[in-house]
Design a binder for these strands. Structure first.
Lengths: 149, 149
DNA sequence: CTCCATGCAAACACTTTGCAATCCG
DNA sequence: CGGATTGCAAAGTGTTTGCATGGAG
């Protein structure tokens, strides 16, 4: 896994220096897996542990961590860039289920799109390397509410 | 289809006034189907025909047209909101093929996700109403280039 | 004639940049 | 020590808002 030793090592391998700020930013993203924090939220959380940090550093660090592939950005079209930890064993990114009722965002880890990518290659001569999929609908709780109405 | 008569009628049905500005904005989006214009580009194009128009009007009109369902916004995570004409006969939005080589964006009209939505309902109790799917990869031209290298 | 819609400019919100001070290696 | 990194504040960017004027119904 990505423990602190690896974190420092990965940075150095890519020619970047290890700093406390970078560690703190990475920690916050990792400790809040599944919450899809945006840059500002990450900034606030890092400041709790490291109050001197500046916004610019957080933005620069997030860009750097994305560049080295340790995190990646998702866009839920709410005006914020949100971040998740990369899991190296994921060939493709997981899918998001976004509830139109309560706004919850859940994740589906299964890769359901393999056969579709074959169809796209056959029919459109387009070789898919990755995909981003968002399903909008109603989660179990909101479905129940709808029936009750 | 959405000719000018219908345009005015749809607006009025929803309680909005018909104005030249709204017509021009809609025209530009429609005349550039498939180009995924962003708000600024739409503004520039409208100004060619209607130079007095202000940016604010364009933004307000795009929001309004989206609200009444005549257009909809897509986000390719390039910092711009881009717009497409809605086709009423599309139950689900089409998919986008985004080429990592040349940046071209093509569209796949087939709805390939029906069976996947069933799986999601069975396995996750989530009822999908719509989806947004982007495939990143290489288009035919860029595939050829890669082989030639 | 009554509001809704427009144009302008100023305000916003998120992000990026310039630069001197600081710190990693 | 030397260049990468930081913090601060100022500058950018795309978009939104306030308000007086203008136009649709």
């Amino acid at each position: 896994m990505n423990n602190e030793k690896d974190f420092s090592k990965i940075l150095k391998e890519k020619g970047y220096k290890f700093t406390n700020q970078r560690q703190f930013v990475y920690d916050v993203v990792m400790e809040n897996e599944g919450k899809h924090l945006n840059s500002q939220e990450i900034y606030e959380l890092v400041r709790e542990k490291y109050p001197e940090i500046g916004v610019a550093t957080v933005y620069r660090t997030l860009a750097l961590l994305e560049e080295v592939g340790m995190i990646y950005g998702v866009d839920f079209e709410d005006g914020y860039r949100r971040y998740e930890i990369s899991k190296e064993d994921e060939e493709h990114r997981h899918h998001h289920l976004i509830c139109l009722g309560c706004g919850t965002i859940r994740e589906v880890e299964e890769d359901l799109l393999g056969s579709i990518e074959e169809i796209i290659f056959k029919n459109h001569n387009f070789k898919v390397k990755n995909h981003r999929v968002k399903f909008y609908g109603y989660c179990d709780k909101c479905l129940v509410k709808k029936f009750e109405l």
